[in-house]
Nucleic acid binder design. Structure first.
Lengths: 329, 329
DNA sequence: CTGAAAGCGCTAACAG
DNA sequence: CTGTTAGCGCTTTCAG
């Protein structure tokens, strides 16, 4: 059998409550008693049963991270960086994190209520949320502590951390403009995410905006690779292509290279995100950096503030972006 | 208040036990009763409290993954790939995973006993374990279900999944030999990991083995970058450098390039692992691929077999490696 | 096929 | 400063 608080209490000839108090470090315990109890705990090599503690205290010190269910989860550099930030703070603040891959495709209503009711988590962070996902409203309405990452929506209680996608995109197009690119095609990402929409908005705000030059894709290299043809085959070719994320830019560049189109001389290419391989790809990718690592940190910090009632909903944080100029544009 | 099993039982006019039975799907329940209960659960939007369940059943359906505590956790492509494999299987088999960054440096004895006793996990997987880490013996002796990844040790009960590091390295050196490289420097990784030792053994087994050509580093790009000088400044220069992992190879190549040394013509460079950016780096990295994704999958599968008593300790699995020839050698 | 009793190990709230 | 009482929500075991 495992050693429990009762064993310690018996051996120390005190009540279990007293043991519990030294465990939590709160409440008054005589110094001598505490020392005796601590000694016995060490002797018996006691370690508390956290499940029991959670059941009783209604706190688990663990945060659930909701992510889309995909194979090869960690091959996504965006996720990976946000998670690194989250993990840094969780270590610092002594929380555990649990990844929760959730199937958001099929039309089976996903609901986060089961996660909330499971009592496994003190709070939830949602990554890669989709616009108008009803389960998000449900989550927000439940009042359960939660933060939505890279998702911008000004509802009453929704807490979010997002990048300045509009401004970031605008600055990219301005940069291209100054470089002499007046005809810039815009390759949109998955428009069921607010950041894809915002980036498109950034393009619409730019001097180069031309509705004929808007193409629709997904945040996905393979899809971009295929769809790139539509841009390449344009009669009036653009001199630059702005891609809504770096993976798309990579796909587009692969396709351009296959077609012996020189980057950036024939067509310049820009991305958004600043994923790791952008630096190593040839030509090295010019892009708009969003600090995914910072976003991860910020989102968990905000969530913990919420949980510990140091702040109230709605928390709304916008994180700056930054131009990273390399060789592709 | 939250809806509990008691609410359901009352409304259905049965005992809580009957509700519990339909919840678990085991034991006999009359079809009608079950239907009634199911209906009421839906009506009330009932979701079980998993903490309570775990306390009672002594099972949590979650696996702890022990990893070294570092900043920017997920920037390590090796970890990332192994974790992807683990996560794939966890989704398939309906288990949760929890990452447990553990500080293994300082001389404070780390112990996994607290993790075991916390009752939070049904099993543990250890990544990046160190040779002769006493806490590993403790873990193994405890009899708690566990699997150690990329760690080869034939003790009575230790379960491991490892790559064929010796053979892999041998084949790399054989390849270099055939390419005409008779003078090959070997750059060793962190020798407190069994796989670093094994790779060194592979070099020792090779035709090119020369103790003057062995250099010691860590599995770390920055360290390799600095240490590379020692190799570069050698009077009798090698024609190739075998690095014990890809990050080291990247560091070495950066340094060589700084010194205007042509890769592979002046000095060829090989790595081990096949991390993602190796393909995009210029010159593209020639390396020994270990299937980290597969290793992740295999290790969780083995652990679940252990937990569900489908297999017994010791489980010992060696995974094949494969030469990936690109441009750097 | 269903129920009663007991308990998993801990903490909150109150009393002293 | 310490103890008592009660209970978190579920499952196991045994009985019927």
């Amino acid at each position: 059998m495992n050693i429990t608080i009762t064993d310690i209490a018996e051996k120390a000839k005190v009540s279990r409550m007293t043991v519990s108090r030294v465990l939590s470090g709160s409440g008054y315990v005589a110094k001598e008693t505490a020392e005796k109890i601590n000694k016995i705990m060490k002797e018996l090599d006691y370690h508390p049963n956290l499940i029991a503690r959670s059941l009783s205290s209604q706190k688990t010190k663990t945060i659930g991270i909701i992510i889309p269910k995909t194979e090869k989860l960690f091959f996504d550099n965006y996720l990976t960086q946000v998670l690194s930030g989250i993990s840094d703070i969780s270590q610092e603040r002594d929380y555990n994190i649990m990844l929760l891959p959730v199937n958001r495709s099929g039309q089976q209503k996903t609901s986060y209520l089961n996660l909330i009711r499971s009592k496994l988590f003190d709070g939830l962070i949602v990554l890669k949320a989709q616009i108008d996902d009803p389960s998000i409203n449900e989550l927000v309405d439940s009042g359960f502590p939660s933060v939505i990452v890279n998702h911008r929506k000004y509802s009453d209680k929704l807490n979010f951390v997002d990048s300045e996608n509009i401004k970031g995109t605008e600055s990219a197009l301005e940069y291209l403009y100054k470089k002499g690119h007046k005809k810039v095609a815009f390759f949109a990402g998955s428009l069921n995410e607010t950041n894809a929409k915002d980036r498109l908005q950034g393009y619409k705000n730019s001097l180069q905006y031309n509705s004929d030059y808007v193409f629709y894709g997904e945040f996905n290299k393979g899809v971009a690779f295929k769809e790139a043809d539509k841009i390449i085959k344009l009669k009036s070719k653009p001199t630059a292509i702005f891609c809504s994320d770096d993976y798309m830019a990579l796909g587009v560049m692969d396709r351009l290279k296959e077609n012996k189109i020189n980057i950036p001389d024939d067509i310049a290419v820009m991305g958004f995100d600043n994923i790791e391989i952008g630096e190593f790809y040839r030509p090295a990718l010019t892009t708009v950096k969003q600090s995914m690592f910072e976003i991860g940190k910020t989102s968990l910090e905000a969530l913990l503030d919420l949980i510990n009632k140091q702040k109230k909903s709605p928390i709304r944080i916008m994180v700056k972006t930054q131009l990273v100029i390399r060789d592709s544009a």
